[in-house]
Design a binder for these strands. Structure first.
Length: 541
DNA sequence: AGGAGGTTGATATT
DNA sequence: AATATCAACCTCCT
């Protein structure tokens, strides 16, 4: 037997890749240096506790499953393999540490509160079992903690400030795929199967996707192989890369107008550091290029920005107790939330986006703006937290820091404050898709509506609706709100909410100039306002 | 204290 | 395609 051999374990969580993976490379290097001393076990833990932390829809389960299968394949090419462990980390690690005689555990550091608490506990268990733990920051280009430290212990609250800080930091070295392991470092199969009741091969689709009826089109398969293929395809046209300006890309093209690398970055199938390096190489050859915030590098740095600000506040995903977030008296409206969630608001552009999200798991960033603004400050006056939860379930690229940060941005709760700029659910989409081809694809019941009224089907007469084969209230819903009216009311509500927040912040009472709410929304406005004052008072600073 | 700038508004006008 | 107007927020910098 192998009693003298010790095991080196790499724990995959995010970072589902073999390229540019410092924590994985560390154990591979150690094992190659002394092959007679070590076994190597790369593991992924299917942690049931994750479901208390976040909602995961069928499409993202599939993405994960595909990513794990691809990772196993990549590891096998390196003469290793992936071990799937089922159970909570706190329960399984003590057993693994003992049974495998573990010497070293490595993993990629994370900033999400669930991960932080989990990892702290695991570190403690490891130390009790005499297991050394090494962590590496490789999900982001820059270490959020380091950026905060460089800014004197506070996260920068503007993107420009953030850029100023990271400009002075040195870039990490991007690592290649580690060299394959020599024979004998992989524990033989029946040895581990006999003793390890919680260790398995890669899960099948059936095992991970509990509601297969919710699976949509598999347009963006998971895995490092597909991630690298997609990156290469995105970088092939260097003029396109150099000229990229996010605001000039279309939210409603039939094929994505941007790279769709976000799901791969979220799971770490693609290294942000590698993508950044590759972009920079191209920009050296194309001196006339776009720049942050609108460039492709700028997009990566937005991700870094949100990771940094999120790392400084465990309440980043909620309004209460969130140091960044303005306190706004949103209202619960379950029927409106339900209509928005399932693409039944009666606004074809909004509904097309929400249906694309549910089917394909990805929508363009500006499409996210349109529906997020509509749900919150633009039209429905529903909390960004409710929208965040829906995105959390449906987006392939759901990433805690980015999702919360962008929802606060769009609802003008933090980082962005020009609440009087409201997206029109009618006009915004017309700019890039005047004929409504996108709506016809995702809201097929409206397919026969002419370009002139497909964004505003209520403008068609009843006889015209019959002619187009889609009668409002029967085949497609009436619009649930009148944007022209409610968006103006909501601007005033935002103004009132900002005023309350200012008063609490400065401790000064401003002139009374109360906005009288509309009859339809009047219940509880003053109460909501006073509640807002109380919650603002709970904010730090 | 005051002004400039802020990834991506809508609309009307030039 | 660029510019003014709408109404007017925040943070940063001087």
């Amino acid at each position: 037997m192998s009693a003298k051999r010790r095991t080196l374990v790499h724990w995959f969580r995010k970072g589902l890749r073999v390229h540019d993976n410092p924590a994985l490379s560390q154990i591979f290097n150690d094992a190659r240096a002394s092959p007679e001393k070590f076994y190597v076990r790369p593991i992924f833990i299917l942690d049931p506790g994750i479901l208390d932390w976040m909602q995961v829809g069928a499409n993202r389960w599939r993405f994960l499953q595909q990513s794990l299968v691809d990772l196993d394949k990549k590891l096998k090419e390196l003469n290793s393999r992936l071990y799937i462990v089922r159970g909570k980390p706190v329960d399984v690690f003590p057993e693994l540490f003992e049974r495998w005689n573990v010497q070293l555990l490595t993993f990629e550091s994370d900033i999400e509160p669930y991960a932080l608490q989990r990892d702290t506990t695991v570190q403690k268990i490891a130390s009790e079992h005499g297991v050394k733990v090494d962590t590496h920051c490789s999900h982001t280009i820059y270490n959020p903690e380091l950026v905060i430290a460089k800014n004197l212990g506070k996260a920068p609250v503007t993107y420009q400030k953030f850029l100023g800080i990271v400009d002075k930091l040195k870039l990490p070295k991007v690592l290649a795929v580690p060299e394959g392991l020599p024979d004998g470092i992989k524990p033989i199969a029946d040895e581990f199967e006999a003793v390890d009741s919680c260790v398995y091969d890669c899960p099948t689709l059936d095992q991970l996707v509990k509601r297969p009826q919710e699976l949509g089109v598999n347009k963006f398969p998971g895995g490092e192989t597909e991630a690298l293929r997609r990156m290469e395809a995105s970088l092939i046209d260097e003029n396109w890369v150099a000229a990229f300006e996010k605001p000039n890309t279309a939210p409603n093209s039939l094929e994505p107008s941007t790279t769709v690398l976000s799901p791969y970055l979220k799971f770490g199938c693609l290294s942000a550091r590698l993508l950044h390096e590759r972009l920079k190489e191209i920009l050296v050859r194309k001196p006339k290029h776009s720049k942050p915030p609108v460039s492709l590098v700028g997009q990566l740095l937005w991700r870094e920005f949100y990771y940094t600000v999120a790392a400084a506040d465990p309440n980043f995903d909620r309004m209460l107790g969130n140091a960044y977030c303005l306190q706004i008296p949103w209202q619960k409206q379950p029927d409106h939330l339900e209509a928005w969630t399932h693409g039944r608001t009666g606004y074809p552009f909004i509904d097309a986006i929400m249906r694309q999200l549910r089917q394909e798991g990805w929508i363009h960033h500006l499409a996210r703006h349109a529906v997020a603004c509509f749900l919150t400050r633009g039209d429905l006056w529903i909390s960004w937290e409710d929208g965040q939860r829906v995105f959390e379930q449906l987006l392939l690229d759901q990433d805690w820091a980015l999702n919360a940060g962008n929802w606060m941005w769009l609802s003008a709760s933090a980082f962005f404050h020009q609440y009087f700029r409201v997206y029109s659910p009618v006009a915004f989409g017309k700019k890039t898709d005047p004929t409504g081809a996108y709506i016809r694809k995702y809201v097929p019941e409206l397919a026969k509506y002419p370009a002139g009224c497909i964004y505003e089907p209520w403008k068609a007469t009843l006889s015209a609706q019959r002619e187009y084969g889609c009668v409002l209230g029967v085949d497609y819903p009436h619009r649930i709100v009148n944007h022209d009216i409610v968006h103006k009311e909501n601007i005033k509500r935002m103004s009132a909410a900002y005023k309350v927040n200012r008063e609490v912040r400065t401790g000064k009472q401003e002139d009374q100039n109360d906005y009288e709410p509309s009859p339809s929304q009047s219940t509880g406005k003053r109460k909501a306002s006073s509640e807002a004052k109380k919650t603002v008072a709970k904010r730090r600073r």
